[in-house]
Write a protein that binds this DNA or RNA. Sequence first.
DNA 1: CCCGAATCTGACGAAACGTCAAAACCTGGA
DNA 2: TCCAGGTTTTGACGTTTCGTCAGATTCGGG
Lengths: 214, 214
Amino acid sequence: MKRSKAAPLSVGKRPLGPRAVITRDKLLQATAAMLETGGLLEFKVVDVARAVGTSPATFYQYFASVEDAILELSAIIADDLTALLDVINKPWRGSKSLDNARQFVDEYFRHYDEHGAILRVRNLSAQEGDIRFRKVRNDAMLPFTKALAAKIEESQEAGRVVPEINAFAGGGGLMAMMERLAAFRYEFEARGVDRASLVETTARMVHQTVTGRR
Amino acid sequence: MKRSKAAPLSVGKRPLGPRAVITRDKLLQATAAMLETGGLLEFKVVDVARAVGTSPATFYQYFASVEDAILELSAIIADDLTALLDVINKPWRGSKSLDNARQFVDEYFRHYDEHGAILRVRNLSAQEGDIRFRKVRNDAMLPFTKALAAKIEESQEAGRVVPEINAFAGGGGLMAMMERLAAFRYEFEARGVDRASLVETTARMVHQTVTGRR
DNA sequence: CCCGAATCTGACGAAACGTCAAAACCTGGA
DNA sequence: TCCAGGTTTTGACGTTTCGTCAGATTCGGG
């Protein structure tokens, strides 16, 4: 059981003044940094406050809970990915299609490198059933899943992919694979599979599933 | 910074007596149950103690920290999966190979359904860099990754899979995909993709990647 | 330089952590 | 049956973090 109400954002609904915006932003940044450094279980709002040179009370001034702050960070970083949708939506024809897949995977890996700590917490919370995190994750992932599914359907209509595959599940599976490989990239590197090789392999699996071609 | 030393398991190294073993086990069970119910962030050892009808001090008698308890749970549930290795190591020939893939995926999904809460924490901690969790995860996953990789290599030698694919990365990618799809199964069901359909699609993607055949 | 609004924080009660010495509990032998 | 010795549990405690609130501080416009 946890006390929790909406962050006041000052009294009533008054929008934040400039000073407040800066403080709030610093707190968000520090929260992200803190997550990168230590794990979720070691996370202390006292530390975040200290890092910003402010007091815990200030943190709670702007966020009702740690989760809320991370939720907001999750929403923010989602923007970092939207440009990538164009890559999928290009036509995947001929020899260009493999390049598309490569670019797609490569960009996604970069995204994860940059925001892994937040994405991990987002995904954990989503899996644990927190509806707000599920929504923010879906908002980020669904467009990709759908775009890939649409491509898969095209290939099915052209007879290159068997109809037993559910296009939506296929798209989701590819996203799943990428997300996970990005997350465990270091395990692979420890075993001699470097980034380029991982990207190439992943890209080919995506390409194969999407186009039905080798 | 966190105080943390090995759980005493009573004084010195004396093995636990029968009563202690039971208590310890109850605590582990309750920990697992607690993780299923609420999220990691809501986890309180007080609750676990209460559930077992004992006191927090007793918990710390047997586990140096919550992580330690979850780590042990992670190691325990790994056994639940070992039988599945046989399925991969069977020959994947002809029409049987798709059945193998189906069985493999189906079993893995079951495993996740049963132990999802623990696996989530294990994976988060592993990704956050905790070396003990990385090890326990690797011990569980690596045999599968390697077995799949070996199959992929066979297919490469037979010329059915392109050599640009790194077999190990391919195996890891497949494991990644399964793990993730299992984790987000409910998102798919909410969108009309039922379990059977998800299994079928996943199995076909595995099959395709492993054998190079449709 | 003063005032009111905006922002911040000291101080606090509640809750959880993690430790330890002592209490409670066995069990087997007299 | 009772006792001794080891085993297991826990009450009680100092510490840390949480989350709140009233009041202090800061700031910009007049």
